[in-house]
Design a protein around this nucleic acid. Sequence first.
DNA 1: TGCTAAATTCGATAATAGTCGATGACAGAT
DNA 2: ATCTGTCATCGACTATTATCGAATTTAGCA
Lengths: 223, 223
Amino acid sequence: MEKISPKILKKFSPLSVISEDELSDLLSAAILEFVAEDEILLLEGDARKNLYFVIEGWLKAEKISPEGRQQTLRFIGPGEIINELAVFLNEPASMTVIAMEKSQVMILSQARVEDLLLKNPKFSREWIKSLALRVKHLLNHVENLSLYSVEARLARLLLDEAKDGVYQRPSWKTQSEIAAQLGTVLDVINRNLQNLQKQGIIEINRTEIKILDVKKLEALSRR
Amino acid sequence: MEKISPKILKKFSPLSVISEDELSDLLSAAILEFVAEDEILLLEGDARKNLYFVIEGWLKAEKISPEGRQQTLRFIGPGEIINELAVFLNEPASMTVIAMEKSQVMILSQARVEDLLLKNPKFSREWIKSLALRVKHLLNHVENLSLYSVEARLARLLLDEAKDGVYQRPSWKTQSEIAAQLGTVLDVINRNLQNLQKQGIIEINRTEIKILDVKKLEALSRR
DNA sequence: TGCTAAATTCGATAATAGTCGATGACAGAT
DNA sequence: ATCTGTCATCGACTATTATCGAATTTAGCA
């Protein structure tokens, strides 16, 4: 396999706690792969049990309803790992992963990882942490979906992701994507965004959303 | 600590893979406690990082919105473990746990468990599995909340929990509780139940709900 | 520069879910 | 057996979210 910078590898927390030897052993069997924009990396039901480490680029994991509506479960960027459930529970992939932009992933086989899990407790412990974190995010997601309105969820998204009052959005983060992430549809998001803008709380343009009135936005995030 | 039957202890999957010695070592510091009906076992924000093993009885974990509406995240029965997030991420409890009926729990300290995690990889591996399972359930929950109507979610609940076409409900499982579990409110659940009954799909009474027409219910569960 | 497809915007309407007030039915307690 | 509080039921009304059709703007590309 071509070289991957150690700096990038350190971003994967389970990999950051193992020895050099263990790491190079793991990587010896790794495969690097590119995924083109809109390409499906993993299809729900896929029975191949590999782990995918995102080296660069952004992807999304989603579920699709019979009617074609989609719920984005998370956006996945560099340093994040895909398909853990399938590997740890030894069952087919539970969701579909699609590349939002050209991305690069490193593929590791289930066997290699299982092996190291039993050999190095620190590795396991770190993975427990990473799964616990996933649980935490999902709990938050559930709470949002069931207890808060679309407006509040949108407000939270903006507050959470904004740096210095500005929510920079990558070109692939369209209003449709925001809708899928918040568990609703494009139209509703658009109307809510327009509303917020009319009230002078935010300012929207193609590449970013500026938060003009944090206080008001925070108030809305609690309704 | 008083004796707990090994049969019950085996139900906790992480405990089922460790040696007798490790188990008795763990248990030597365990505390047994009773929780009365409606008593709060754990309050969101509680900084004490203990694990609670449910020996008997049923509890629920929930989040409450500022307006007082509540979302039940899961019902917790014998063999299940509470407060893993706090212990593994070393942060305050992320939700509130209340006893639905008089229950008994075994309390283990964070330190003991951490210790064993680093000593016994099988123990860690098993915990990874248990966390992965939690992630799976939560994913399912998110999917349900955002992609399916209340009616569909209700249909799923009935189909999932029914044995031989009958959904036996414990006395604490009121329509309010069902509502909180499905992320809605009492009135809505009641209307939906009545509807299903009127259509001859189910038959409701105080202690159980009979499924008369599985086919139709399954059809509804997909809308 | 102009073309084209994607993204956004808008208005109108429908469907679903939530709220409120009031009442009925039941189980456990006295 | 009666009382009492919880649980369940019902109808009417409101609010939120979803859907549909269509126009408009924008970005990428030839």
